[in-house]
Design a protein around this nucleic acid. Structure first.
Length: 466
RNA sequence: GGCGGCAUAGCCAAGCGGUAAGGCACGGGUCUGCAAAACCCUUAUCCCCGGUUCGAUUCCGGGUGUCGCCUCCA
């Protein structure tokens, strides 16, 4: 049994072999922080956070680096429109990014480097490329000499001539070849800028990732990941820059997540169908959003709609309910109950098998539902041993934790004494078979958003939706 | 024009050579004082046409449909 990952470079699933035993170095392309993130940005964040959690579950130590692009054209435009500085905008949306992703239970990266804080390394990187003949200065800009890198196109599996003939590349007098791309852009008057050997300016987009990977992870890393659209040109260009300089493989495995679509169409500003996480999590539990994202294998596209999300609310609710009911039943028991390991192992095995197959979270989630079904059956019986129930609870929470899914309700679940008194009063009425009174109390509590469920082990209550 | 993905029940989604996981919804039943939660049962021959094979949803060829990359983009 071994972990296999799909590698865009070879277009195959390959056994994962880390550079260093028990360690993973991975880099995930992060957002350009000029606005709130949309659900398309959320997918790689959630997916690769899950990849990271799974590696850790399997005993790896993961060095997880994800950047913030905090200077580029869009930030500069936003700065002009809003009459505030580029760094102010970046700070605002980095903060928002952290809020949104943390709501989705995405853990903070080991390092979140910012382009503007990597400037010396970026400039040094470009200088070396110029010295090596892979880049040239032209009117204050610096370009990468694409054709000089023999392997250009190996990631996207395109020949350089096909790229050229099919491409809608604008003719740019300052470039030697239309395929050349910018490493450094000269500043226009009034724009934010940094000093460099080629004059004041700012870095091109691709170079920051090459510089950051080198700085934080080394010349060759295990995994480089991002959205499928980044395959070309972004990652192709990163490979060109880094491998031209280091003469060694930049990343052993390239992972790309599929896009999120709206009505089976690409999400884009021009269509006007962009959904911001910021807005979405006002309508839906962020955990449901995470669950929904993980319910599909990460390389496939996901269609997004309120209807689909509502189905996910139901499905995820089943997981939460089972977790809650197990807790309720075990609450009266000794807390130090040992879990029946044999039971837990029955589910770990298929879960690991699913995740080992290129992080098949859809199948992993199916295992969660298997636990729930079996746990519910066990719960049905009054004679089920607490060791067994503890095992279901333990393995459910362990495996959902690997997926980063939180099954517990937020800790506002405390009954005030008034409610408690009502519940007791109803119990009293039930005992006396005074069901009219009992039912009216139940209705009254339901109005207040508290749902009662009678079980052989006593009253179970929970807060209703909304 | 170049490169790629996808097409499985009402919906979502796994499987990828031996006659179809899981979830949501629907219907029937059980449990319950009534509910709720839960459990049980019921629901598909896998886009079309060829081929390979004892056997194909799964491999090969050809269609059709659909989404995407090739331009900033997760």
């Amino acid at each position: 049994m071994s972990l296999k990952v799909y590698n865009t470079l070879t277009r195959k699933k390959e056994p994962f072999k880390p550079i260093e035993d028990h360690k993973v170095r991975m880099y995930v392309c992060g957002p350009t922080v000029y606005n709130y993130i949309h659900i398309g940005n959320a997918r790689p964040a959630v997916v690769f956070d899950t990849v990271r959690r799974y590696f850790e579950y399997r005993g790896y130590i993961v060095n997880y680096v994800s950047n913030f692009t905090d200077v580029d054209d869009r930030l500069i435009n936003a700065s002009k429109e809003r009459h505030i500085s580029v760094p102010e905008i970046a700070d605002q949306f980095i903060k928002a990014y952290k809020e949104d992703t943390s709501a989705l239970n995405v853990r903070t990266a080991t390092v979140h480097p910012r382009a503007t804080e990597t400037m010396p390394e970026i400039i040094r990187f470009i200088s070396k490329l110029v010295d090596a003949g892979y880049a040239y200065e032209s009117g204050g800009d610096v370009y990468f000499r694409t054709r000089k890198f023999q392997e250009y196109g190996k990631l996207s599996h395109q020949s350089i001539d096909d790229l050229k003939s099919g491409a809608r590349i604008e003719i740019d007098e300052s470039k030697e070849d239309p395929l050349d791309f910018a490493l450094w852009k000269a500043a226009k008057p009034g724009e934010i800028k940094w000093e460099s050997p080629w004059g004041d300016g700012r870095p091109g987009w691709h170079i920051e990732c090459s510089a950051m990977v080198e700085k934080y992870l080394g010349d060759t890393i295990d995994i480089h990941a991002g959205g499928t659209d980044l395959t070309f040109p972004h990652h192709e260009n990163e490979i060109a820059q880094s491998e031209a300089l280091h003469h060694q493989t930049m990343a052993n495995y390239w992972l790309h997540n599929g896009h999120i679509q709206i009505n089976h169409e690409k999400m884009s500003k021009s269509i006007g169908n962009v959904i911001l996480v910021h807005d979405l999590i006002k309508k839906f539990d962020p955990q449901v959003v995470r669950f929904f994202i993980l319910s599909v294998q990460y390389r496939h596209p996901i269609n997004f709609s309120d209807t689909l999300l509502n189905d996910a609310v139901q499905a995820f609710g089943r997981l939460k309910t089972a977790n809650y009911n197990l807790n309720h039943r075990l609450k009266q028991a000794d807390l130090s109950i040992e879990a029946n390991e044999k039971i837990a192992e029955n589910y770990r095995k298929p879960f690991i098998e699913a995740m080992d197959d290129d992080f098949n979270t859809a199948n992993a989630i199916a295992v969660l539902f298997d636990i729930v079904r079996d746990a519910n059956i066990a719960l049905q019986s009054e004679t089920t041993s607490e060791h067994d129930l503890a095992a279901y609870l333990q393995v459910l929470s362990e495996l959902s934790g690997v997926l980063g899914l939180k099954l517990e309700e937020a800790s506002d679940s405390i009954l005030d004494s008034e409610v408690e008194a009502l519940i007791n009063k109803r119990e009293e009425a039930r005992k006396n078979r005074n069901f009219a009174v009992a039912d009216s109390i139940r209705d009254q509590l339901k109005e207040a958003g508290i749902i009662l469920e009678d079980t052989p082990q006593g009253v179970r209550w929970k807060r209703g939706q909304e």
